[in-house]
Design a binder for these strands. Structure first.
Lengths: 354, 354
DNA sequence: CTGTTAGCGCATTCAT
DNA sequence: ATGAATGCGCTAACAG
């Protein structure tokens, strides 16, 4: 691999001159410039960002640490971040913690070694080790989606409480009163806040909160499937379910279908996230849309701003709104809910009976 | 940020010694070693991979260039690669071409500047620029899923032709004879090969190939939705459809449902990929499973092997097999297919009629 | 307009 | 068992 020195020698100039033609950082006689350029091309010279970084103390690289990219939610977030970062001249090193806090710390250490210019962190759990590690390095950090106690950093999040509230309220407005909630992991604030919003909506509507309508799950389709099964097997099953993410909602749709419960006729289902496939589930999923791509882009831009600017400017906290997307998995409350269904009985029979 | 030199000074030893305790690369008196270690901890010293890379000419970093990570297929592939690479001591820099060949070249250049030790490439289109760029740098490359003409590199792929053949054959075995195919982009070999397999199966079974049963689409749910709509609106609609990826199949399921065509009773649908959500579509999708995670892991391992070993060893080409996963979207051919359906007529009525 | 020089932070060879 | 010295490839004063 050719080096700048070799190019310089062959061109009969100093490395300094070569450097300057590459970076356009001072005047070079047109003739010389052309010669150098053509030599660079001919010799297939590619500057070493490694050497440059050592000199500049900047790598033009951003680390992005996420809990698990198998969740399409994060995939979209990453896309937004990656896109925005690239436009600003930064590359992304992607790290996937696979929901393992220990792996997360190990990864962040590696990122620090690689001297990333900044870190985008969607943390999976926060142990002391993480807090310590982050606090001691004065590298710019932007937290997304998940706050980390003890880490001072900008924070970009969606308003989960409001999202949960809005979703539930929509169901209430449809006439439902037996509304269940399938939550994600209880230790995740975003997950918890959605449930808080759900409860607030219920309370405001004067609907008592039933504990048997509150299912804990795990943000996976499989988990949603199981949770819906349990809910539908209740002596008095709900007429509507707020699934706190789309993956669980889609798993739930599957459970409903297999239990011969028709959505939305017998059961209304609302999801959360508005993942790409939500538009094509059967039926198409009504859901709360988070601006995932925008969140990613906003996060990256905020990080770059901090990298370029004051590392110690006052912290910012962006709270983005979540909007209702009505599709086909929700309908007005008309009958007794799933309890009215008889196994194998075709839906329209039930609808004739009303 | 502390440097090795500072640690050395504070410890009253040379940088050489500090370096050796960090890397365990020669004997150091236990006492000194302990002192250095505790100082490293105390000073929050983190070695600079940048400086180390400049010295070693190795970055322990692998670039991975994919067409578009919004396709869950690639998300899983990346996961496998990322996992395997990390275990071998390598990090991944992820680059997303967003299906833009120009962006792809720009990215690869940046990766080359960053002196990645190797490249995993799932190419989106191959122009001359790409070929040139890659050919001139003697950096190890492993191609996944998509071959690039003119680039000599190991190649990991699934057997798409066989997958298409097996999928179609399964449908034929079920008694179907009116089998349509929704293809992906025709310029992509993997996409094309699945169709080739489809045709071979048809031919072997003595079923004539109908051009109106061959829909071109684009590997997106939206595209699948539209393609299925057209197919179902045909004067003589198919009784089974082979969608050449799951995203399109799921979009198609949605189209069928909205056209009141019941799957699998009136229409059998088989997908391709076995994406995570395929298990939870309504009905659960029968599909050809590609070993995505394993492919990613295999690719990463092959690349590392080449980085560590002979850059010019004979090229290897791994062709992984694709297996049928039978779920609920396919059923034996019994009636006339979708043509027999009358709008709004419940399915069981038709089944009584046979 | 151009060249010389001095590091950036580390690994490593050669001494001791 | 340890240190001194060198250079990886580049940028940026500084000096013409």
């Amino acid at each position: 691999m050719a080096t700048m020195k070799q190019v310089a020698e062959k061109a009969g100039v100093s490395t300094s001159t070569v450097s300057h033609v590459i970076n356009n950082t001072r005047m070079v006689r047109a003739e010389v410039r052309a010669r150098v350029l053509s030599l660079i091309d001919e010799m297939r010279y590619i500057p070493s960002a490694v050497a440059r970084s050592l000199k500049n103390a900047r790598t033009q690289t951003i680390g992005i640490m996420i809990p698990n990219n198998s969740n399409p939610y994060f995939a979209e977030l990453i896309q937004g971040a990656e896109d925005a970062a690239f436009k600003l001249g930064y590359n992304i090193i992607l790290c996937n913690a696979y929901d393992d806090a220990r792996k997360q710390v190990a990864y962040i250490r590696v990122l620090l070694e690689k001297r990333i210019d900044g870190l985008i962190l969607a943390a999976c759990g926060s142990d002391d080790e993480l807090t310590m590690l982050l606090r001691d390095q004065d590298i710019p950090i932007v937290l997304v989606d998940r706050e980390v106690s003890g880490v001072d950093a900008d924070f970009v999040e969606a308003d989960h409480e409001r999202g949960g509230y809005l979703a539930t309220n929509y169901l209430i407005g449809l006439g439902h009163r037996q509304i269940a909630c399938v939550s994600g992991p209880v230790n995740l604030p975003p997950s918890r806040n959605r449930v808080v919003g759900y409860m607030r909506a219920l309370k405001e509507a004067g609907i008592p909160i039933r504990l048997d309508y509150l299912m804990r799950s795990d943000f996976t389709s499989e988990g949603g499937f199981v949770a819906f099964q349990k809910l539908l097997a209740l002596p008095q099953p709900p007429s509507a379910i707020f699934a706190s993410n789309d993956l669980m909602a889609i798993g739930g749709l599957c459970a409903a279908s297999e239990a011969q419960v028709r959505v939305p006729e017998q059961l209304s289902v609302i999801g959360y996230d508005d993942v790409a496939l939500a538009s094509f589930s059967t039926p198409r999923l009504t859901t709360m849309a988070q601006p995932k791509y925008e969140m990613g882009a906003l996060t990256a831009r905020a990080l770059v701003a901090r990298i370029l600017g004051d590392h110690h400017a006052p912290l910012r906290c962006e709270k983005l709104d979540t909007t209702l997307v009505v599709r086909q998995s929700t309908a007005p409350y008309l009958r007794q809910g799933a309890a009215a269904s008889v196994e194998g009985e075709p839906f329209w029979a039930a609808s004739l009976m009303r």
